[in-house]
Design a protein around this nucleic acid. Sequence first.
RNA 1: GGCGGCAUAGCCAAGCGGUAAGGCAGAGGACUGCAAAUCCUUUAUCCCCGGUUCGAAUCCGGGUGCCGCCUCCA
Length: 481
Amino acid sequence: MPLKVYNTLTRRKEEFIPLKDNEVRMYVCGVTLYDKLHLGHARAAVVFDVIRRYLEHRGFKVNYVTNFTDVDDKVINRAKSLGTPIFDLTGRLIEEYFQQMEPLGVRRANDYPCATEYIKEIIDLIKKLERKNLAYAQDGDVFFRVRGFPSYGRLSGQDLKELSVGARVKVNERKEDPLDFVVWKKAKEGEPFWDSPWGKGRPGWHIECSAMAMNLLGESIDIHGGGVDLIFPHHENEIAQSEAASGRRFAKYWIHNGLVKMKDQKMAKSTQNVFTLSQALQDYDGETIRFFLLSAHYRSPLDYHESSLREAKSSLERVYNILKRMKEITGEQSQRTTDSNLRFLVEDLSSHLKKMRTRFIHDMDDDFNTPAALSFIFEAVKKANLLLREGRSLDGSSQQVLLKTREKIKNLGDILGLFQKEEKKRLGEQEKKLIEILVNIREKLREKKDWKLADEIRKKLDELGIELEDKRAETVWRTKS
RNA sequence: GGCGGCAUAGCCAAGCGGUAAGGCAGAGGACUGCAAAUCCUUUAUCCCCGGUUCGAAUCCGGGUGCCGCCUCCA
């Protein structure tokens, strides 16, 4: 079964075959550094992190680059309004980015280039375009000549004739053609600038990604990604610049994640309709947010409601509960069981277990279908629960099935960056003994039906993170995660 | 106006021609002194209308409604 990936360029799922052997070069448009991160940014980061992890799991060697755009109008304006130097702002936001992505389980990319570190490369790229007569300078600005690149519009399915340019933004009259876009922008008074053959200025809006991707990964890369809102004009322009300059296909597969919606609208800074990552991280741990973000297929829009994260938390707890319980079953084994119902449950789980990996790969091979992959894991959870319900009357081989299921859930979860939370901190022997003393005393209280005091002990221990569970014959305790 | 995409239970969400996964929430039940946890049961004219097919949530045609892009945006 081949891995299939939906390619925006062809609008269909295609078999994924890297350009070179099993090496994958992947570039994903990162964030512009001018404001807080929100769930939309988190989704993009998590989605491509999963794609990267899965590709690696599939045996590909992935070189993953994602950038920071640290100079543009928004950044400049924001810094100005804050009254801080631009680098203070961008530096702080980069730091914040890593601080907030780390709890989400987003692994570090191989490189995080900043636009301002690639000014020279950007200038070189523009010069190349100029030589090919695809860019022209005009009073300090440099524009890309869109009509010089015949396949312009292919990615977004736009017809040059239909593009209603200037419908909402006034056309810069210095352009030869309204479709043309800026690749180098003349510096205004008080703006940051770099020297260039066209005078003092800074990169245009799309050129930095072309320059960084081509310099770090090569003129032809395997995957280029980002949110669907980047398809036009950002990625369209990237293609035009890059392919016009190199004469080669820029990226083989274009992968775009759907947007996070809130109140039926996309979540975006421009609409003020945002739920920031830091807000989310205040109330929920990163894994819960990650789980939520992976609960829909990456290309679908994802609705965020006020209850979304609470629901994700419950789902996640279900998995951690069973992981915990499965771990606890070791030890006391009974004789080989002959109970037919029990044997059925064991067989059922056992056969599910055998299919888990294949099914997971099958689902993920189908354009990274994480919700489908997760659902099969949840079925395993259910079957394991059913079996565990039978308590201690499990024989050794049944216990093995449970333990293997546990391993499988953790292994597959690891590919998604889920279910890896470490078992809670170890308690010392002293502490364990103290807890056992309390539990034993409480047992006696319960025998005397002194519920009030028994409940109080349970409550107090619970507050310390120690959970008691009264079973038929005994009380078991555990630390909470 | 142009270009994309989506419409599946109370909510989220798979499904890609063979008779509706999974999660969350709710209700009832089992268990419990009470909890917690867990399990069981329970809720779907798959937006509408036609068509193709032995058979369609799935394919085709036509509607309707939402969303995104055409301006910076993950």
